[in-house]
Write a protein that binds this DNA or RNA. Sequence first.
DNA 1: CAGCCCCGAGAAACCGGTTTCTGAGGATGC
DNA 2: GCATCCTCAGAAACCGGTTTCTCGGGGCTG
Lengths: 336, 336
Amino acid sequence: MTIADVARKAGVSRATVSRVLNGQDTVDPVLAGRVRQVSRRLGYHPSAIAQGLARGASHTVGVVVPDLANPFFPEVVKALTVAAGKDGFSVVVADSDEDPEAELRLIQDVSRRVDGLVLCSPRAGIADLRRVVRKGLPTVCTNRMVDPPLTASVMIDSGRGMQAVIRHLTELGHRRIAYLAGPSSSSSNADRLGALERSLPGAVVIPTGSKSQEGYASAAAAAEAGATAVICFNDLVAFGALARLRALGVAVPGEMSVVGFDDIPAADFVHPALTTVRLPKAELGRRSWEVLRDQLGDHGAGASVRLEPTLVVRESTGKAIGATEDAVAVGERAGG
Amino acid sequence: MTIADVARKAGVSRATVSRVLNGQDTVDPVLAGRVRQVSRRLGYHPSAIAQGLARGASHTVGVVVPDLANPFFPEVVKALTVAAGKDGFSVVVADSDEDPEAELRLIQDVSRRVDGLVLCSPRAGIADLRRVVRKGLPTVCTNRMVDPPLTASVMIDSGRGMQAVIRHLTELGHRRIAYLAGPSSSSSNADRLGALERSLPGAVVIPTGSKSQEGYASAAAAAEAGATAVICFNDLVAFGALARLRALGVAVPGEMSVVGFDDIPAADFVHPALTTVRLPKAELGRRSWEVLRDQLGDHGAGASVRLEPTLVVRESTGKAIGATEDAVAVGERAGG
DNA sequence: CAGCCCCGAGAAACCGGTTTCTGAGGATGC
DNA sequence: GCATCCTCAGAAACCGGTTTCTCGGGGCTG
């Protein structure tokens, strides 16, 4: 079922069929009607592949994520596909499973078949990324700075989020705070770690990861270190920590406060409901598309967008155990 | 940067470049070496679009899901992309946002650019699907029966899952059970409803939906109806129900048992940990790919695969309030 | 040494569209 | 009435690859 079949049955040339179906008005209405009728009767749909080749644009963009099973990313991807879909673009999704090597391979592979690329929180090193990102292929990178104009970027200011968390915990009188750190390949993790070490040089850093299981494994170490509050790389890790603390008989927030990052939907339903830093996931996806689309059009360098997170206080944080009213009051003054 | 550039610089024909890069051994090693070197130096990567057109296969498959924000689907999609990726296929993802109309449009659109299609729990009516699914395009449909050979299918036997839940609750002495029903467009919901009505004609059915918010809204009605156990369409709905019950001061599982479907990762971390029916999500994705790939090869009709769910008992279910030991004993005998 | 076969590489056709180029025919102007 | 312009549709080139076809040359056989 090709354009040639339609042309033959309608008794016109392929060029005419193409013109009619692309809405050009330079065709005799009689012929146009015949073409439309024949093409409908035959159930003809032009091949996007062939159109892509002829037009030099596939109307497809790629997005590479570290882990679709982490609820953060599907929300970003969803917003992105919906926004792109409205502009007539399809999205191919690739999951690197947190593996930097695989990520590089996927980027190269996907690059061959798309008009543009979104790298979501890439795990590969900057040097590798620079080597692999095709010069001339519009690209936006989220949550990791690669020098413009190689890629545009849409960032969430993780450091600010961490500062808000620290202020919140300090106001509650916490003095000994642990951080269950994310993957070392994560740039967001580096940002959070940087902000933590600047604001709170004495914090206990425990290498953990990005999954609940890893949070479960690390939570005990946080308790043993004498921390009264534990900040988790993300909500998934926080869930694991909550489960472990419950298993250990440590009351949250009575004996230990717990904070996450992301604000995935389930954060509001665990018990105690999780205090967390809400990252604007849908906006991240939407803005990424907008920035990419702008590059697609004018082939300019693309903007750098910065999004703000917000602290959502729920039930998993409370006054530090043993904190005096004085200390809390001081904390509150300092925070205000 | 096209194959012609490489050919010119290497002093050979385009055909030879193509042969070398596709690993044909009929080329003089000297020429082959030169071609490889030039193509590497120029950073040449063949256009997948052009290859797709020439070979008549894009090595891309589409997957349409109702809602990527529901953790069930990303897990399926992830397993599918990984499995497909191993066979050199890319996956384009489309999210219909639970809207049957949008779903139909997406199917048509995606169909134009892929070699095969996976419809995940489609929400559109059978008649519409039949109209829109391109005859001859390899297609597999999950969790909804469309007559073969129009599409192959990979199903999870939701009815069996529901039976297991009912047996479990009955053994615990529950006699008055409510079901927070999912979207009426969901075939899984219909299966569960059917099994429920066959096994337990007196059950209270409360139209709800697929999201936590909707579970939150409906849970009160379940309590008011005097149910001692509530079965939720999925875990998200169950989370909402748990939150509402807590807000109402109804103890779970003391006064009310709650069961979900899916076993999303967070189900193990809410409190009380959710008893739920585990659906093999990753296997669903993997098997979907395998069935699709088989069709891609031999253009046969494609198999029908049926997967089994398993009941995972955690903390959100317990003995019915007011259940006598006798009743429980009877239930246990009946269930055994 | 003639005839045959096989090997390997370039020429050309092809995939299914879009777009430029070309030319026939009608309308207009003088 | 003839030259000119304009409109519209078909022919052909093109997108960037792959694959078939073709043909020259070397090695083998008789």
